[in-house]
Amino acid sequence: MGRPTWGGIVQHHRTVPRTAYLASTPSGKDRVRLFCFHHAGGGASAFAGFERALADRIDVVRVQLPGREGRIGQRLPPRMADIVTELDAHLDPYLTGDYAFYGHSMGALVAHDLAARRQARGANLPSRLIAAACRAPHLPPAFAALHDGTDEVLIRTMTDIGGLSPALLGRPEWVRAAVSLTRGDLRLCAGRDTTPGEPLRCAIDVFHGEDDPLVSAGQARGWARRTAGAFGWHTFEGGHFFQLGPAADVVARAIARLLVKAALPGVR
């Protein structure tokens, strides 16, 4: 895709460009920044809850891939490596100082591959990668094989795991759009290179839903192989989208403890 139209914002006393890959931008306050990468078929709005819950301690920066929400009509690059290359270029001015990545499902793979690319070229790395609801990156990605399946199977699976509200099934045009978007994202995951590279020189924490039908605990624990640093394991009540359910506040508090090494006000 073409280069974006650059605007200017001030962050940490210097001007950095705006990019369509960010649905929210760093505040410029001197605190850790958390870049959030959304799931297949989703968008940056999935992290609005994080932004509200963590606003007083952490700069939540929501990453937006093409083809959804404010970027409808923009072409999704054909390969995961292409997306990662673009993200590295577009986000590089923001990836300074103390920052971390949070990726949910497909987003965890995007975040991992971006960190790996930055490590390979000697760029500043995140202090921590939080991989949620995702099989280890050297394993076949969950759900991705359905990218060439029928609409009926894809719709049923999306509904079963909570990725498509049953209330939308009566809106065929919305369902078609959701299926098309999800299919494109899953195609990216299915074609991704799963060859293990050098372990990341940053900590990795895995967030896992106890009832996730797509990712087993063993598959998620495989992330331990991808770090040369500390590894953390955290389980939460819920399924594949546990961060949107009853455990939402617990997830936000866990992130705060990891990133600021101190609980949010009122949190023990």
Score class of each variant (00 low, 15 high):
Arg3Pro: 01
Gly7Ala: 13
Ile9Glu: 07
Val16Met: 01
Pro17Asp: 01
Thr25Trp: 10
Asp30Met: 11
Val32Met: 09
Arg33Trp: 04
His39Gln: 12
Ala40Ile: 11
Ala40Lys: 01
Gly49Glu: 07
Asp56His: 15
Arg57Gln: 13
Ile58Ser: 04
Asp59Arg: 06
Asp59Tyr: 02
Gln64Cys: 06
Leu65Met: 12
Arg79Asn: 11
Ile83Pro: 00
Thr85Cys: 00
Leu87Gln: 00
Leu91Val: 01
Tyr102Asp: 07
Tyr102Cys: 13
Ala111His: 03
Leu114His: 00
Gly122Pro: 03
Ala133Gly: 12
Ala133Tyr: 05
Ala133Thr: 08
Ile155His: 03
Thr159Phe: 02
Asp160Gly: 06
Gly163Lys: 01
Leu164Phe: 03
Leu168Tyr: 04
Leu169Val: 06
Pro172Leu: 10
Trp174Val: 13
Cys189Gln: 12
Gly197Asn: 02
Gly197Lys: 00
Ile204Glu: 02
Phe207Ser: 01
His208Arg: 13
Pro213Thr: 08
Leu214Cys: 12
Val215Cys: 08
Ala217Glu: 10
Ala217Tyr: 09
Gln219Val: 13
Arg226Ser: 11
Gly229Thr: 12
Ala230Ser: 10
Gly232Thr: 06
His234Gln: 12
His234Arg: 06
Phe236Tyr: 09
Phe242Ala: 00
Gln243Met: 10
Val250Lys: 15
Ala254Pro: 09
Arg257Asp: 12
Leu259Thr: 05
Leu259Val: 10
Ala263Gln: 11
Leu264Ser: 09
Pro265Glu: 07
